[in-house]
Simulated assay, not measured.
Amino acid sequence: MSQENRVRVAVLFGGRSDEHSISCATAAGVLAAIDRDRYEVVPVGITRTGEWVGVADEPERWQITDGQVPEVTGSDTPRLMLPMGEAGQDLVAYQPGAVPAQLGAVDVVLPLLHGPFGEDGTLQGMLELAGLPYVGSGVLASAVSMDKHYMKMVLAGAGLPIGPYTVITDRQWRTDRAAALERVADLGWPVFVKPCRAGSSIGITKVDAQADLAAAIETARAHDPKVIVEAAIEGREVECAVLEGRHDAPARSTLPGEIVVTSSDHGFYDYRAKYFDADGVTLAWPAELPEAATARVRELAVATFEALSCEGLARVDFFYTPTGEVVVNELNTMPGFTPFSMYPMMWERSGLPYTDLITELVELARERPTGLR
């Protein structure tokens, strides 16, 4: 493809959520690997306060290095705006006191945002209003999948196996804390206390006794006023990567992989284990499961993807219990996407290299219309 005919891709990252730096690290991987002969890349950063800014097309600038996390800042940088409507696909740069400048049309958006205000349907709704194709799930699937409460309700309604849980809303915690604590105790111990609408294991606490519960809920509430508490499920943690089918073909899945936490510093697969202790975690792929269990994981991964009306990509996480039961834990519509993240690694080992996976996702987005579908 000639340089003039390349597809123009806006790579969008950063954002207002607690996963801002993880999003930057994801962008570092994609910027380094995307096919530059096929795509003209327009990197767009979103600051922690929500401004869109033009940023450096320098993958190393956005990596997590020696424990130092990257951040999109807006100092001395033109702000960017995306006009709404079918004719609004030109990015516009503006600064106080200056005439806005059009930066040219964008063909497709690759949103590499994790968590609220990016992965939860808010950004997807804006892109729908702008009439711009984008990678990944639409408004409803993004919103439902981000909220672990409603995700579990949809999966249960579809007859898919989920574990016991309870939800504590902000109002419930403020008005009837004792009843909320009692509902949690009914789950048994230990439990996992989580922000309902967050990812990357941020704000999660494993609680072994009633005495530590209130503090764990407050930890989760620092990230989200709505908290979900899940009963611990004895079993192995396995993951399956799902990719939308092309031209009405069924969704595709990889063989499942297994997360193995090898360091005693981590009681579970927490935030630091995911992003700052690569030597303490390994991916066993394919997971050593009975043939029937492997088939069941793959079947349930696609069924979960379809039940939530997902598009593009998703990673589905499971527990495989000692009795051979497969339980759906959750689905991520924008899983970690660095070259070393579990989702790309599973596809890489399945024969779809990282660069080709990015191309596949962009082309899926270009084939999909915006609006009702």
Rank of each mutant, 00 (worst) to 15 (best):
residue 141 A to E: 12
residue 80 L to C: 11
residue 137 S to H: 01
residue 114 H to D: 11
residue 145 S to K: 02
residue 160 L to T: 07
residue 165 Y to K: 00
residue 84 M to I: 13
residue 132 L to N: 11
residue 75 S to W: 03
residue 166 T to N: 00
residue 99 V to G: 02
residue 151 M to F: 04
residue 144 V to M: 09
residue 173 W to H: 08
residue 158 A to W: 03
residue 119 E to L: 02
residue 93 A to G: 05
residue 125 G to C: 10
residue 77 T to P: 07
residue 70 P to S: 08
residue 59 P to T: 07
residue 78 P to N: 06
residue 99 V to R: 14
residue 172 Q to I: 00
residue 77 T to E: 06
residue 69 V to H: 12
residue 93 A to T: 06
residue 105 A to S: 13
residue 123 L to Y: 11
residue 161 P to C: 09
residue 141 A to D: 12
residue 101 A to V: 14
residue 149 H to F: 04
residue 73 T to R: 14
residue 61 R to S: 13
residue 81 M to N: 02
residue 155 L to F: 06
residue 182 E to N: 10
residue 157 G to Y: 03
residue 132 L to T: 12
residue 131 G to F: 10
residue 172 Q to R: 14
residue 101 A to K: 13
residue 158 A to P: 06
residue 159 G to H: 04
residue 79 R to C: 02
residue 145 S to H: 01
residue 166 T to L: 02
residue 62 W to A: 03
residue 72 V to M: 05
residue 100 P to D: 00
residue 70 P to Q: 10
residue 97 G to A: 06
residue 83 P to K: 01
residue 97 G to L: 05
residue 90 D to N: 13
residue 85 G to T: 03
residue 115 G to M: 10
residue 66 D to K: 11
residue 106 V to A: 12
residue 162 I to N: 04
residue 107 D to I: 11
residue 75 S to H: 14
residue 181 L to G: 05
residue 89 Q to F: 10
residue 119 E to R: 01
residue 126 M to R: 13
